[in-house]
Design a protein around this nucleic acid. Structure first.
Lengths: 342, 342
DNA sequence: GTTTATACCGAAAACGTTTTCGAAAATACT
DNA sequence: AGTATTTTCGAAAACGTTTTCGGTATAAAC
C-alpha cells in the first residue's frame, strides 16, 4: 500500500536514487540503457513522484488560487471555467475560494492561499473591499496577482477588464437610436467601480445626444442576492415617480429581469411601452419573454485571459526576469433582442 | 524577501529549531516563558509554516479534489458552493476539475488529483463513464471517495443522492392530481442512472393510477449544452405526433424551459392547454413566465453533506480506524408554480 | 547529601525529491 | 603505452518541518 519512491526503484535496480531521478527526467548524463530500465520499472510499479517533496525542493506548487465573490453566478462560473480550462493545459491546478462579497473573508482567503504557497492568485474583489493591504501582501511576496472585472485601480498588478463605460454608452445609445426620449437607469451601489463606470457611460450618452440628464431617473440597487427583488421594487417605484419613461438601461440582467417581471405584472408592455437593456448576457436573458437586449460580458474569455497573463508572470518570476503588469480590455458586444424591438 | 523559517526564529532567540516548533504547537514540554518569546517573534516576523514541508512530514495536504461534469450549471455550482463553504470550516482547500462529461478527462483528472496527493475526492461522474477502474484506484490507495448525484452503484464508496424515482413519481402524481389524462415525458439519455430512475418513477405513477403507459409519449433528449434546443424540438415533435397530451413531466428545467418557449411560440397555452413539471428548480424557473413547477434538488445541501461525509472518512483514515461507506438520500420537494395551475 | 521526580531543552532522524560536484569507468587520441 | 577526453554514476547537501528520545538542570523527597 505504501506509495513507490525513487529509493525503491533504486534498490531494485541496484543503482542510486540520484540516477533514478535523473533517468526519469532525461538528464543527459545517464546512459540509454539505464534510462530504459528505470523507466520501465517505474511504469510497472506505477511510480508517481511525491508532490510534497517536489514542491519542497522546487518551491513551486503548480497550483494557483482563485478568489471570487460568488460562485453561483452565470458570469463568474463562466470565468471559473475559463481559468480552469486554461490552467489544465499548462498543468496547473486551481483552488477556488469564495469571498461572499466580504472584505474580511477575502482577506482571510488571501492569507490562506499565501500560506499554501500557491504560485499565483487571480481575484475579482468583493464589493466591500476598500482597503488593499492584503493584496499588496501578495505583491510584496513577489507572487503574481491578476485581477479581473472588479478591480482595484490602486493595486499595481495586471488587470483583465471590459470597458464598462463604453459598453454602457453603447447600450444607452441603442435606446436613443430606436427612439427613446426619456431614459432611466438602474445602477448598482457606490463601491464596485463598474457601477460607477456604467452610470457614467449612461450619462455621457445622454449628454452627447443633447438629452438632459435627470438624476431623478437614476435608481440605485445594492445587487447581491436580492437583485431580482430590487429590480421589481425599482420598477414599481419608477412607475410611481414618472409616467413618461420609455427606456431603461439596467446595471445587470438579473435586476432587469426583475423589473420586466414587475412591469408585466402591472400591465406595462415591453418593448411597446418601455424598452429595456440589461448587462452581462446571462443565459436566462435569451430564454425569458420577451428576450432581453443586453451587453455581452465575455466571462469565459476573461477567465482564459486572466490565467494566460498569470502564467506569463509566473514564468517571468521563475526565470528571475522582471514581471510587468498590463491592463487588458476585452471587447463587449450589444446583443439586440426583443426587449428593444421598435 | 525570503520567507521566515523556524530556523531563523531559533537563531534569533538562541534556541533550537525543535523548541521553536514545539512552542508554536503548544507542546507541554516547553516553558511558558519561551513559548511567549517564540510566539511573539513569530508574529512580528509574520512567520507562516511552509506547507510543502508540513505536507511532506505529515503526509497530509489538507486539500481535497472535486471532479464535476460542468461548472456553469445552476445545480453543480450550488454543490461547489456547498462543498467549499463546509471545507473552509474545517480548514480544507478545494481543487476543482471539470470532466466535461468525458470519461477520458475524468480519468485523467483523477490521476492528477491522486498524484497531487489530495486527502480525499468528491465526484459526480460523467455521463460517458461506464468503466470504473479509475475510481477503484482511489479506493485502493485508501483515499476517501464520495460520489454525489450521478453515481456509480458498483463502486464501493459513500454516496449522496436524491431519490430520483420517488421525486419523479411525485411530479407525475401532481400532474394526475390536477386532472391531466394524457401525460408525456421528456427523458434524458440512457447513461446517467438518474434519467432512468426518473423515467421509472413517471411510469410507476401512471400505472399506480390506472393510466396506460404509452411509450410513444416518451421522448429522449441527450441533455448537455443543447438542452434548451432539444426541449424546443421535442415540443414541436410532440405536437406533431399527438393532439391530446395535457401534461408533461420533463427531465430537467432547462429542457422544460425550451419546451415552454416553443409551445408559447406555437400558440399552445401553459398551463391551460398543457401543464408542465420540470426537475431541479433552477433559479430561472422562478423567473420565466409562466413560472415553472419543478422538483427542488438541494444542490447546496448536497455539497455540504458530501464534504461532511468525506471529512468523517478522512478522519477515520487518519486515526487508522476502518472507514465505512454509507448512502445518504436527501429529500426533494415539489415546488408548485404557474405551469401547473388548474 | 543522596536519590527520585519533574520541567525544560536539543540532537538527530525522517519525509522524498532535486541538483551540484567530484570520482570512476570507458573511450579516444598521441 | 600513457595521456586526454568523454560518459556514466553516486555521495551528499538541501528544502523546512515534526517527533522521538535522551540529557541536563532544577525542585522535591527521604
Amino acid at each position: 500500500m505504501k506509495p513507490v519512491t525513487l529509493k525503491e526503484i533504486a534498490e531494485q535496480l541496484n543503482i542510486s536514487v540520484t540516477t533514478v531521478s535523473k533517468a526519469l527526467k532525461d538528464y543527459p548524463d545517464v546512459s540509454k540503457k539505464t534510462k530504459g530500465l528505470v523507466k520501465e520499472l517505474a511504469k510497472t510499479l506505477n511510480y508517481k513522484p511525491n508532490t510534497f517533496a517536489v514542491n519542497l525542493r522546487t518551491k513551486e506548487s503548480k497550483t494557483i488560487g482563485l478568489v471570487i465573490p460568488v460562485i453561483v453566478h452565470h458570469f463568474f462560473s463562466n470565468v471559473i471555467k475559463g481559468i480552469i480550462s486554461q490552467a489544465e493545459k499548462k498543468g496547473y491546478l486551481v483552488i477556488i475560494l469564495q469571498s461572499n462579497e466580504s472584505y474580511e473573508l477575502e482577506k482571510k482567503h488571501i492569507g490562506l492561499l499565501l500560506s499554501q504557497r500557491v504560485d499565483g492568485i487571480i481575484i475579482s474583489i468583493a464589493n466591500g473591499t476598500a482597503d488593499f493591504k492584503h493584496l499588496n501582501d501578495v505583491i510584496v511576496q513577489e507572487k503574481p496577482l491578476v485581477m479581473f472585472d472588479k478591480i482595484a485601480k490602486l493595486v499595481k498588478c495586471s488587470k483583465i477588464i471590459i470597458d464598462d463605460r463604453k459598453a454602457a454608452y453603447t447600450a444607452t445609445q441603442h435606446l436613443i437610436d430606436i427612439g427613446c426620449k426619456r431614459i432611466a437607469h438602474f445602477r448598482g451601489g457606490l463601491l464596485p467601480q463598474n457601477s460607477i463606470d456604467r452610470f457614467l457611460g449612461y450619462k455621457q450618452a445622454l449628454i452627447d445626444n443633447g438629452m438632459a440628464y435627470d438624476p431623478t431617473l437614476v435608481y440605485i440597487c445594492e445587487l447581491g442576492d436580492k437583485s431580482f427583488e430590487e429590480g421589481k421594487q425599482n420598477a414599481r417605484q419608477l412607475l410611481h415617480d414618472h409616467d413618461n419613461v420609455d427606456g431603461i438601461f439596467i446595471n445587470t440582467d438579473l435586476v432587469a429581469i426583475g423589473a420586466m417581471t414587475e412591469f408585466k405584472a402591472l400591465g406595462v408592455k415591453i418593448p411597446e411601452d418601455i424598452k429595456i437593456v440589461g448587462f452581462s448576457n446571462w443565459f436566462m436573458s435569451s430564454v425569458i419573454s420577451p428576450t432581453l437586449t443586453t451587453i455581452d460580458q465575455p466571462g469565459y474569455k476573461m477567465g482564459k485571459t486572466a490565467f494566460k497573463q498569470l502564467y506569463k508572470e509566473m514564468k517571468a518570476i521563475k526565470n528571475k526576469k522582471p514581471k510587468k503588469s498590463t491592463i487588458i480590455t476585452l471587447e463587449t458586444a450589444l446583443v439586440k433582442r426583443e426587449s428593444t424591438k421598435s
